[in-house]
Design a protein around this nucleic acid. Structure first.
Lengths: 228, 228
DNA sequence: GACAAAACAGGACAACCGGTCTGTTTTGTA
DNA sequence: TACAAAACAGACCGGTTGTCCTGTTTTGTC
């Protein structure tokens, strides 16, 4: 013990590494997860600081207010997540409809694998914050607009290739986003991802299976492995 | 002033009218509105008591906890609202699709008239509370299930009348609910009800308008008349 | 090395929230 | 009228939350 004190007295107390960007990202990581799990009002900055291992001063230095933190999460993380799971796959797909189908199936598969439906980050925050603050609403509305525009642009590309002649790009885009958002809402509430496949099938206008009295598709109620 | 004191001293201080049912309904009214406007976590019982003109003792007498109050709002008010705006109209309609169409248009017209989109009460609470508490989730999931079943039942009735032979009742119901929920989500975030009509048109599979280069449908951004 | 700005630490605080508690009044019942 | 239970009033409290503030350390720059 005396050795420790002697050391502490002699050496400049100990080193600290400044890593503003890394710390900022760490805070955004934790905030994104917490907002997704508990929402904005349900997330406490204290718990956030604890799980991120960040001091109050550091948090306040990068994000002066909770609102500023949430705005950063929306504009950087939520937008990026949508880009990764929706916009990029749709752009990379052969056609718009094929892209939408692929995303629906990929998300459904992922949800069934992880056994828990957390819901769409954008919709989760949109419902909670759209009426709470005009800045929040504007940021969220912008992301919705990008989402729809990416799909509409893909439809227009299809049309220039001779396909989708009878389709209204904007309307189809709005419809695809709405179907996905609503399906995720139900999937989250029911903790059952199968509704995503139902909506995809209906969106594609697939006919009923050949055998009239088909076996009832069993709906797996997912049980989450975490806290109550 | 002395007269008042003299009166107060003589008479039994003043009358108080016990009206448990009325008071309970008044609390539920205010709570329903507050949850719709600010969400569960964003609603403070103190402000709720103030606007309802109810004392803390009275509130606690009828609803021991905030959770109990929210559960009552969900099971009584939200379910009733869904019954009024969706289930009853669909049952009363000639066909399922006609009922769905009528509800979409009625809601869109109402939103455009009142100039402000508050969102779907069920979806609003579902997003905030489904992951927060299993009791909340169960209650909300039950309402979603009733909603879908009402539409599916109507499709089955149509089928017994010889219509909708190629339609899967459950899938169509899930799809209609998803499209509506998602459209309301976007309408709330954009404060623009026109997306509801877009989705309805797409849901009905209507073809594009006759004139190829139709005028752009102007989207009216609704401005709310209330607080910031 | 000097120095200013950025980066970070950590405590303090005032406001607020939900729940509890005690006490009073009203109401149904006999 | 007597009385118990329900209905209501209002103050109170422990805990939490977001924010602010002061001080220290690191880093870039001349």
């Amino acid at each position: 013990m005396s050795a420790e004190i002697a050391q502490a007295a002699k050496e400049p107390p100990r080193k600290r590494t400044n890593d503003p960007e890394g710390l900022r990202n760490k805070v955004l990581d934790v905030a994104e997860a917490s907002f997704q799990a508990h929402g904005y009002h349900g997330s406490a900055l204290g718990e956030l600081m604890a799980t991120a291992g960040v001091s109050g001063g550091a948090l306040h230095h990068h994000f002066p207010t909770k609102k500023a933190l949430a705005l950063a999460v929306i504009e950087e993380r939520v937008a990026a997540a949508l880009d990764e799971t929706w916009i990029s796959p749709v752009r990379a797909a052969d056609t718009a409809r094929e892209g939408v189908r692929a995303v629906f199936e990929a998300v459904a598969a992922e949800l069934e694998q992880q056994g828990f439906v957390r819901g769409c980050p954008l919709n989760n925050l949109a419902h909670e914050l759209s009426l709470a603050d005009p800045d929040f609403r504007a940021a969220l509305a912008g992301i919705f607009a990008e989402w729809r525009q990416a799909i509409a642009d893909k439809i227009r590309a299809d049309q220039q290739a001779g396909r989708e002649q009878g389709t209204d790009p904007e309307r189809f885009a709005a419809f695809a986003v709405a179907a996905y958002s609503g399906a995720m809402s139900m999937a989250k509430t029911a903790q059952d991802a199968s509704v995503l496949r139902d909506c995809l099938a209906e969106l594609e206008g697939s006919p009923m299976p050949p055998f009239p009295s088909r076996a009832k598709r069993r709906r797996r109620i997912l049980l989450r492995p975490g806290k109550p």
